[in-house]
Design a protein around this nucleic acid. Structure first.
Lengths: 259, 259
DNA sequence: ATGCGTGTTGCCCATGGCGCAACATTATGC
DNA sequence: GCATAATGTTGCGCCATGGGCAACACGCAT
């Protein structure tokens, strides 16, 4: 995220600055007025007034009087409206709940967002091991089943843009080169689903399939996840077919899964 | 939420307007530029430019070209940073996961927000029936265990301000008068926990206890919930004691659960 | 083909956003 | 305990930006 915003048609500079503050706080956790002013290259009185507006609406809050600021719960309220409207329009939760019951694991929906995976809805399965809140989390594309599904059908320049900055080994089976990833994505296109078997985290397994828009393009990914002790390689193809079937029910929705 | 913003020291009018747009879209689902302009009492070119800034940052998106707007997934990303930081600072998820395992039901944390209950974190239990995403949802105070906990220890004018606008019967046991609610809240203060037994929804039961700040004031509520077929009246007191014990572990955290 | 409504954008000007300076408060070092 | 430094806030005045107007492009209904 660039700190200086190049003026473009129709944008409002002070609104852009206020949103940049939210993005800085999302990355840093907490910041003071002086630090925010430095990041935005504005005077600290400017930063103080922008923070004041965000504070008044609950989008930021002060950690202590005359101290540092952090993101506020007003954002949780607004995000709740987003996830509710995802369901209102697509009816996705009926499908995701049925899938969670059928396979007994956590189910999520994710989209591609700034070349990373963003989890936008979640239904948890009965497992204790998978008690984890993915909603709102952002993860890399190369080591997640959702990321593979969201990128496999992109053109090559776009697939390359979505690759990680570094190929560190995050888990026993992390893909660590562009070549290996291209072969993996070719297989995803052939099978119609993706698997991540202990690639982002040890013991963590996910199976994902594409949710397509009316133009048959991949708009989102439907994914089930759980521990390796329960999701074994011999089951991957049957699970893949099940997830594909559920994702197909969510595909073809006009005016929804658009980026 | 008033549409006209009375200028106050340190606030930035165009930022206030942009946030007001987000709040309108949260309430309405979708809106057009002309409608937003009318709500804000500004020219539609002003509304169009404000929307353009929000669009550029992903806080809104267009449902279709030259059409209506809705809240964007950028808010889900920002909210994810909020719920992650709740855990980072308070370590609440270790406690909420342990509680979910212990009682086998869904666990949530909620705060009082604009005289309503706002769910800010969630761990789901093993039950299929309780598969429901509360995160970001806002519900009334009088018919929820969390709402009773969040309001019981307020002074009387604040308790009255938190009452619903109407006393409609939402479920078999909905409280339908201020007098009955006052008696209920007195009992909550005495027991140290609250129960909602089929009050907001049929078959839905919740047991909540207060999370207190360093000043011993109620900052948030910890709640377990599930269906009436599993959570029976004879169990309420033991469940209440268990939730109180878990809430106590989350209490006394400086600089966190502040409103 | 025409009329209507919506959303966008160039232009210009009035105003609101901003930087400066001063101040209050808190934290830090000695 | 005191002096200094750093942070955040706020009054003031200026000017750069936000915003209204008008014109335009587009989609839809008739």
């Amino acid at each position: 995220m660039g700190n200086t915003h190049i003026a473009e048609s129709g944008s409002v500079q002070s609104v852009d600055r206020a949103i940049a503050i939210l993005e800085i706080l999302a990355q840093r956790g907490e910041s003071g007025v002086t630090q925010i002013a430095a990041d935005l290259a504005v005077h600290k009185s400017t930063a103080s007034r922008l923070m004041s507006s965000l504070l008044a609406h609950g989008l930021v809050e002060q950690v202590s009087d005359r101290g540092r600021y952090r993101l506020g719960l007003g954002l949780v309220r607004l995000a709740g409206a987003v996830t509710s409207s995802l369901d209102v329009v697509s009816g996705s939760r009926a499908v995701t709940r049925a899938l969670a019951i059928q396979v007994g694991e956590t189910v999520n929906i994710a989209v591609l967002d700034n070349n990373r995976v963003l989890y936008v809805d979640q239904v948890m399965g009965p497992s204790m091991v998978s008690m984890r809140s993915w909603l709102g989390q952002s993860v890399p594309t190369h080591c997640t089943a959702t990321g593979k599904v969201l990128t496999a059908w992109l053109d090559k320049p776009s697939r390359i843009a979505a690759r990680p900055d570094s190929w560190g080994k995050l888990a026993p089976n992390t893909i660590t080169s562009g070549e290996a990833l291209e072969k993996e994505l070719a297989q995803v296109r052939e099978l119609g689903y993706a698997v991540a078997y202990q690639e982002m985290e040890a013991d963590f397994v996910a199976v994902a399939a594409p949710i397509r828009d009316v133009h048959d393009e991949v708009a989102a990914a439907l994914v089930i996840s759980g521990p390796a002790s329960r999701l074994k390689p011999k089951d991957f193809d049957s699970l893949g077919q099940i997830v594909k079937a559920s994702a197909a029910k969510l595909s073809g929705n006009p005016n929804y899964w658009r980026e």
